[in-house]
Amino acid sequence: MDIAGSTALVTGANRGIGRRFVDELLARGAKKVYATARRPELINTSDSRITPLYLDLLDEKSVVDAAAAAQDVTLLVNNAGIATGAQLLTDDLDTIRQDLETHLFGTLRVIRAFSPTLASNGGGAIVNILSVLSWVATEGTGSYSVAKAAEWSMTNGVRLELAGQNTLVQGVHLGAADTDMMAGRDAPKVDPTDVARASLDGVQAAAIEVLVDDPSRYVKAALSGDPAQLYSPPSEN
């Protein structure tokens, strides 16, 4: 798929990785970018190719309305998400459900709404921003890891269901990006622009999976080995 001349829709486009996707799409010659957020008034519309839209993953009507307004979309970027920080054993189950409702059901809701549009426009592509935590849990990420693992599995499932309409479905995995969501977290962070660039390079190459950084590449490779290497207790030294 060629990004130049495409019409894209990016969820969670007001900041972070989503904002960088908008910038990179425009730099690569996208004809139009629907930039969506729960607060679209915060979206920078200095480029006339940007069209802000209200979209909340948990609001069915907002998703349906966005799909009705954006009938020319050929590339869908599912970036919006949350991180409640909930612990699996001690936090309220409703908080854990919020992670799942957002990352699994919310993202799936958007895909279901836009897949007919993509089909009518020749197939196009869907990008789901996942995480290295789709494959491994770390201390303090239990609920988020469960939600991202479910979203990864969903990504693989819809890829099969959409293959017949010539729609590429790409999963993007990364460790931590330098965004507001990760502020204060002591970990190596990639530039959000690098995430957008790697993903869109992958779209142009028809790649169904993109590993953005060393943590995602390491964990992906380790999955074929003894899981103890991912869950060994910290050294006492």
Rank of each mutant, 00 (worst) to 15 (best):
V212H: 08
T179E: 00
D94Y: 15
I43P: 15
D186H: 08
V172P: 02
T179M: 01
D92Q: 15
E236H: 02
A207N: 09
S216L: 02
N128D: 07
T102C: 04
Y218K: 09
A27C: 00
T141K: 15
V132Y: 08
V172F: 13
L53N: 06
Q165V: 05
N121W: 03
T102E: 04
N121G: 03
H103I: 00
M154A: 01
K148S: 04
L57P: 04
A187P: 04
M182N: 02
T84W: 15
L104H: 07
Q98Y: 08
N79P: 12
S134A: 09
A119I: 02
T95D: 15
A206D: 11
F114R: 01
R112K: 13
S46P: 05
E24M: 14
S115G: 09
L93Y: 15
D92M: 10
Q204K: 07
H173I: 01
Q98I: 05
S6E: 00
G106Q: 03
E139R: 13
A221V: 00
V219H: 10
G123R: 06
E151D: 07
I126T: 15
D194A: 15
S48D: 11
A176Y: 10
T102V: 10
N78F: 00
W152T: 08
I3H: 07
A177Q: 07
G123M: 04
G142L: 10
M182E: 04
A8N: 12
A35H: 10
L88H: 11
Y231T: 14
I50L: 11
D56V: 01
L57D: 00
S134R: 07
Q229A: 11
A228G: 05
L211E: 05
S199W: 14
V190L: 05
R112T: 11
